[in-house]
C-alpha cells in the first residue's frame, strides 16, 4: 500500500470508527434519542424529512455563498489596498483588528434591527465573518514581496500597478486561497447563527424549530447537512487552489 493510500484509508477508517463508536455507545449505555440520537436514527431522519430539509439547506447555501461572495470581494479589495500601501496598513489595521475582535454573533440583532428578520442579516453576518481572514492573508501576501524582487522591478521603472499586477497579486494567491478555505466554513457559522436568531428559513431555523418540538434526530440531521455543505465547499476550494496555485506547493502545473 502506498503511503498516500494508507493515509487516506486511515482517515476514512477514523471517521467510520467515530460513528460506529457513537452508535455502539448509545446502544450499550441506553442513551435516549432525546439526548443523543444514534447516527442511524439521524440518517433515518435525513431520509424521512428530505423534502422538508431541502429548501432550508438551499436557503442556507444561498445566504452563505452570497455573503461569502461579497466578503471575498470586499476582503480582496481591502487586502490589496492595505498590503500595497504602508500608510493604508498603519491607518486601517487597528480598526480592522477592533472590528474583527467583536463576536460576530453580537451584531446579528443590529442587522435585524436595520434590515428586519430574514435573508439579509444572514447574508451580512456571513459576509463580515469572512472578511477579516481574507484581508489579513491577501495583505500579508502582497506586503511580503522580497525587497530584491521589488528592486528588480523598480529598476525596470515598473509602476506600483505593474508590481502589484505582475508580482504582488500572483504572490498573494496562495495566501488568498488558504484564507478562502477558512472563510467559507466561517461563512456557514455566520449564516446559521443569524438564521437561528432571526429567520424563518434556513437550516439554523429548522434546527431551532425541531429542538423546540423535541425532534432531536432532526436537529442532528441539520448538523449533518451543515457539515456536508461545509466539507463540500472546502473540497471545491481546495481543488481550485490546486489548479490555480499548484506552483506554491511545487507541483508541476
Amino acid at each position: 500500500m502506498s503511503p498516500d493510500l494508507r493515509r487516506r484509508f486511515a482517515s476514512a477508517a477514523l471517521i467510520v470508527g467515530v460513528f460506529v463508536f457513537w452508535e455502539l455507545a448509545c446502544l450499550v449505555f441506553g442513551i435516549s434519542s432525546l439526548i443523543l440520537p444514534r447516527p442511524s436514527e439521524i440518517v433515518g431522519a435525513l431520509i424521512e424529512y428530505a423534502h422538508g430539509i431541502w429548501p432550508h439547506a438551499a436557503q442556507t447555501l444561498y445566504t452563505t455563498l452570497t455573503g461569502f461572495a461579497f466578503g471575498v470581494m470586499i476582503g480582496l479589495a481591502l487586502g490589496v489596498l492595505i498590503g500595497s500601501s504602508r500608510l493604508a496598513y498603519d491607518t486601517a489595521y487597528p480598526l480592522l483588528v477592533g472590528i474583527s475582535s467583536i463576536p460576530k454573533v453580537a451584531v446579528v440583532p443590529i442587522f435585524v434591527l436595520w434590515f428586519g428578520a430574514g435573508t439579509v442579516p444572514a447574508i451580512l453576518t456571513a459576509m463580515i465573518i469572512c472578511i477579516f481572514p481574507i484581508v489579513v492573508n491577501v495583505a500579508t501576501g502582497i506586503a511580503t514581496v522580497e525587497p530584491e524582487l521589488e528592486d528588480v522591478m523598480k529598476s525596470m521603472k515598473a509602476t506600483k500597478l505593474d508590481i502589484l499586477w505582475n508580482v504582488g497579486l500572483p504572490r498573494a494567491m496562495p495566501y488568498f486561497f488558504a484564507s478562502l478555505k477558512v472563510s467559507v466554513t466561517l461563512a456557514f457559522v455566520g449564516s446559521v447563527v443569524a438564521e437561528t436568531v432571526a429567520s424563518n428559513r434556513g437550516v439554523g431555523n429548522m434546527m431551532m424549530i425541531a429542538s423546540s418540538s423535541f425532534n432531536v434526530p432532526l436537529v442532528f440531521a441539520g448538523l449533518f447537512v451543515l457539515a456536508a455543505l461545509g466539507v463540500s465547499l472546502y473540497v471545491i476550494f481546495s481543488l481550485i487552489e490546486r489548479r490555480v496555485v499548484g506552483w506554491a506547493m511545487r507541483k508541476a502545473i
Partner: peptide
Amino acid sequence: RVGMAFQSSTLLPWMSIRDNVMLPLKIV
C-alpha cells in the same frame, strides 16, 4: 534601460523559466 540581478534569483515561481525571462519585455 537597466538590467539588475541579485544573489537570490528572485524568479517568479508561478511562471515558467521562459515567461520569467520575458518579464522585462512586459514592463520596459
